[in-house]
Design a protein around this nucleic acid. Structure first.
Length: 600
RNA sequence: UGCCCGAUGGUGUAAUGGUAGCACAAACGACUCUGACUCGUUUUGUCUAGGUUCGAGUCCUAGUCGGGCAGCCA
C-alpha cells in the first residue's frame, strides 16, 4: 500500500534557496561524484527546534540529490560533552527524519576510523558512510570527530613540517593580549619562529602529557595583523587532561573546532558544509587549513545561513540547561521545551516540524519567526490525521429528564471528517451527561450560541436539548442543568435538520473514564523573552494546568502512536507517564477559536 | 573608529534587468451537527540618496540601520 506522500517532489515542488541553487549548479557541473552533507551537533545538550531547521536543510539537500547526510558528533571538547546527549541526539535525528530521509542518513560501522587509501599516487585518509536503512543498524553508529583524533594529529604534524604551525608557550591570558582587538592588529608570539624540529618535539611532548593544561598550545602560523581575528595565528590544539566520553583517556591534547571541523568534513567526503552565520568569519580559516595540507580529494566548502529564532521560545543550549537545572521545567523533554524531544512529547508530528521549517526558507537574513507559523503547521497536519473524540475538560452535569435512568442510546460518531477511511465508532447516550462548563452560561453575552436557560443547543452526534432548569449549590454556583431532549432530532431523524445555532460536546456521566490531562501553553508570556537578557522573568505562570477530565470510553484504548482531537477543544497525545487504567494526555495545541467572548 | 554579512507588508519569504507574488497573522463574509476545517473578500511592502538603463526590488556608488567576529567553546 502506497499512500501518496505530500513531501515527494511530484506532490510539492522541491524547495529552492541560495544554498540549493549552489548545490544544483555543482551537480550540473559534475563537480562531485555525490552530494554529501552533514549534521554536526556537539553532544553538550539536547537538540532543539533550531537544529530541526539545520537537519531538514542538510537532509533535504541530500534527499533531493540522491546524496547522503552524515550524522556526526562534533565532540572535541571533553569537558562539556556526555553520552546522554549523544544518545538523545541519535534518537531525535532518527525521529525527525524517519519516513522522509532515513535512506540518506549516513552512519558508519561501529568503531571504524578513517582508512588510508591511495588517490592519484598520494596517500589519503577516508571514511565513507553507509546508510542504515539498507544495513543492520545495530552494527552502525554515527560519525564522531573524536574518531579522527589520530588523523587530525597527523595533519597537525604535516602543518608543522611545512612551517605553517608552531607550539606556543604563551598562557591563555597572554594569547588574548597578543591577539589585539578587532580594530588593532595583534603582535607576534615570541615563540612564533621556533624551528620545525623544536615544534615537532614539543608537540610530541604535549601529546605525551608532559605539560599541564594551558601550558602550551599549537597554533597556525598565518598573520597576527590580519583584519579577520580568526586568521591571527588561531589555536589548533590545546592541552586538556580530561576523560573523553568517546575516546576515554587516549588523548590529553584536543583539536579546536576550526581545526577539527574542516578536516572531519574532508575525511568523510563531505561536499557542502552548511552552518549558521556566526561561522562566516571562520570560513577563511576553514579554507586555509584544507589548502595548506595539499589534500588529494576535492575539498569541502562551507556555506552559511541564518538560524531559526522563533517567538515565545528561547533557543540557546546554555539557557535551556538553566530551565532544566532550575527545575522550571520537568526535564529536557518537558512538553513546553523547544527541544525536539519536548516537541515530540507534546505531540507534534515530525512531519509538521518538517513542514514548518521547510516553509521558512533559507536566507542570510537574521529574522524572527512568528510562533503562529509553527502552530499553523501543527494544526494543519493534525487536522488531517487526528482521530476525533469527545472529552470534557471541566465538567458540569447535565440531566436529560426525558431519558430513563437505565436507558442507553447508541449513536454513530465519525472518527475523522477529513479522512473517510478513518471510519466511525459507537457512542452511548445516557440520562446523565457531562458538558463543558464553558458551554453553559446563565446570563450570556450577545452572540453566545451555546446553552443558556430556556435555550436550545445540539449535542454533537446526538439530540437537540433544551435547558429547562438550573441547579445551584449553596454558594450560587451552577452544579447541574436539567434539560429535555428532542428525541426526533438525532442524526437522520425527522427534526434533525432543525436549525440550532450551537453544537456542543458531551460525555456520558455513567460511562466516561477519568484521565489526567495536562494543558500546556507557551512557556513564556512575551514574544521575545530574552530581549532584556532576563528570560526567567517572563515565564508564563499558566504554561501548564492539570485537570481531571471526563473522556468517552473508547479513549481507554488510546495509542501513543496516534493523535487525538478532543472535539471543539484541542489536539492531544498520550504521555509516556500513562499507566494501565490511568491515562495521561498532553494538549499539543488548541483548535483555533474565532469566538472572542466580550471582555469586561 | 577594523573586518565580514545583511535590509521586500505586522512576520517570514519569492521575483536571477521586464505586471512586486506566496504563506502566516489581522479584518470581514459564506458554509457548518467542531465558533474547527474549507471557501471568498480586504488591509498593509521594495531602508535613503544619487547613478547606469527604454526599463531597477534586482546592477554600480555613497550613506543609514541591523547582525556577527577579540574562548586554549562549538
Amino acid at each position: 500500500m502506497t499512500v501518496p506522500n505530500p513531501e515527494t517532489p511530484s506532490a510539492a515542488p522541491a524547495p529552492s534557496d541560495f544554498i540549493r541553487d549552489i548545490v544544483a549548479q555543482h551537480v550540473a557541473e559534475g563537480r562531485y561524484s555525490k552530494i554529501v552533507t552533514r549534521f554536526p551537533p556537539e553532544p553538550n545538550g539536547y537538540l532543539h527546534i533550531g537544529h530541526a531547521k539545520s537537519i531538514c536543510l542538510n537532509f533535504g539537500i541530500a534527499r533531493e540529490n540522491n546524496g547522503q547526510c552524515n550524522l556526526r558528533m562534533d565532540d572535541t571538547n571533553p569537558t562539556k560533552e556526555d553520552v546522554e546527549y549523544v544518545e538523545s541526539i541519535i534518537q531525535d535525528v532518527k525521529w525527525l527524519v524517519a519516513g522522509w530521509a532515513d535512506h540518506c542518513l549516513g552512519f558508519k560501522p561501529k568503531g571504524r576510523v578513517p582508512q588510508l587509501q591511495s588517490v592519484n599516487g598520494a596517500s589519503d585518509y577516508f571514511l565513507p558512510a553507509v546508510c542504515p536503512s539498507a544495513q543492520n543498524s545495530d552494527e552502525l553508529e554515527p560519525f564522531f570527530a573524536s574518531d579522527y583524533f589520530q588523523q587530525i594529529y597527523e595533519y597537525a604534524v604535516a602543518l608543522i613540517r611545512k612551517g605553517k604551525a608552531y607550539v606556543c608557550d604563551l598562557s591563555p591570558e597572554d594569547t588574548d593580549k597578543y591577539r589585539g582587538t578587532p580594530d588593532t592588529p595583534g603582535k607576534d608570539s615570541p615563540y612564533r619562529n621556533r624551528s620545525v624540529e623544536e615544534n615537532l618535539s614539543l608537540f610530541e611532548r604535549m601529546k605525551a602529557g608532559e605539560f599541564p593544561n594551558g601550558a602550551r598550545s599549537l597554533r597556525a602560523k598565518i598573520n597576527m595583523a590580519a583584519p579577520n581575528i580568526w586568521l591571527r595565528d588561531p589555536v589548533l590544539y590545546r592541552i586538556r587532561h580530561a576523560e573523553h566520553h568517546h575516546t576515554g583517556n587516549a588523548w590529553c591534547i584536543y583539536p579546536m573546532y576550526d581545526f577539527a571541523h574542516c578536516l572531519s568534513d574532508y575525511l568523510e567526503g563531505v561536499t557542502h558544509s552548511i552552518c549558521t552565520l556566526e561561522f562566516e568569519v571562520h570560513r577563511p580559516l576553514y579554507d586555509w587549513i584544507l589548502e595548506e595540507l595539499g589534500l588529494a580529494r576535492p575539498l569541502p566548502h562551507q556555506y552559511e545561513f541564518a538560524k531559526l529564532i522563533p517567538t515565545f521560545m528561547i533557543v540557546s543550549k546554555r539557557k535551556l540547561i538553566q530551565l532544566v537545572d532550575d527545575k522550571i521545567v520537568s526535564g529536557w523533554d518537558d512538553p513546553r521545551m523547544p527541544t525536539i524531544s519536548g516537541l515530540r512529547r507534546r505531540g507534534v508530528p515530525a512531519s509538521a516540524l518538517r513542514a514548518f521549517v521547510t516553509g521558512l526558507g533559507v536566507t542570510k537574513f537574521n529574522s524572527v519567526t512568528d510562533i503562529a507559523v509553527l502552530e499553523h503547521a501543527i494544526r494543519e497536519e493534525l487536522n488531517k490525521s487526528a482521530l476525533r473524540r469527545l472529552a470534557v475538560l471541566r465538567p458540569i452535569k447535565a440531566v436529560i429528564t426525558n431519558i430513563a435512568p437505565d436507558q442507553a442510546i447508541e449513536l454513530d460518531a465519525v472518527n475523522n471528517p477529513e479522512d473517510p477511511n478513518a471510519g466511525s465508532r459507537k457512542l452511548r447516550f445516557t440520562r446523565e451527561l457531562f458538558i463543558e462548563s464553558d458551554d453553559f452560561m446563565e446570563t450570556p453575552p450577545p452572540k453566545y450560541f451555546r446553552l443558556r436557560p430556556g435555550g436550545e443547543v445540539r449535542l454533537k452526534y446526538a439530540f437537540i436539548i433544551k435547558c429547562d432548569e438550573v441547579v445551584k449549590d449553596a454558594s450560587g454556583k451552577v452544579v447541574e442543568v436539567r434539560c429535555s431532549a428532542d428525541l426526533d432530532s438525532r442524526t437522520g431523524g425527522p427534526t434533525a435538520s432543525r436549525k440550532v445555532k450551537g453544537t456542543i460536546h458531551w460525555v456520558s456521566a455513567t460511562e466516561a473514564i477519568d484521565a489526567e490531562v495536562r494543558l500546556y501553553d507557551r512557556l513564556f508570556d512575551t514574544a521575545e523573552p530574552d530581549a532584556d537578557g532576563d528570560f526567567k522573568k517572563h515565564i508564563n505562570p499558566h504554561s501548564l494546568e492539570v485537570v481531571t477530565a471526563k473522556l468517552e470510553p473508547s479513549l481507554a484504548n488510546a495509542s501513543s502512536d496516534l493523535r487525538y482531537q478532543f472535539e471543539r477543544l484541542a489536539y492531544f497525545t498520550l504521555d509516556p507517564d500513562s499507566r494501565p487504567g490511568k491515562p495521561v494526555f498532553n494538549r499539543t495545541i488548541t483548535l483555533k477559536d474565532a469566538w472572542a467572548p466580550p471582555k469586561k
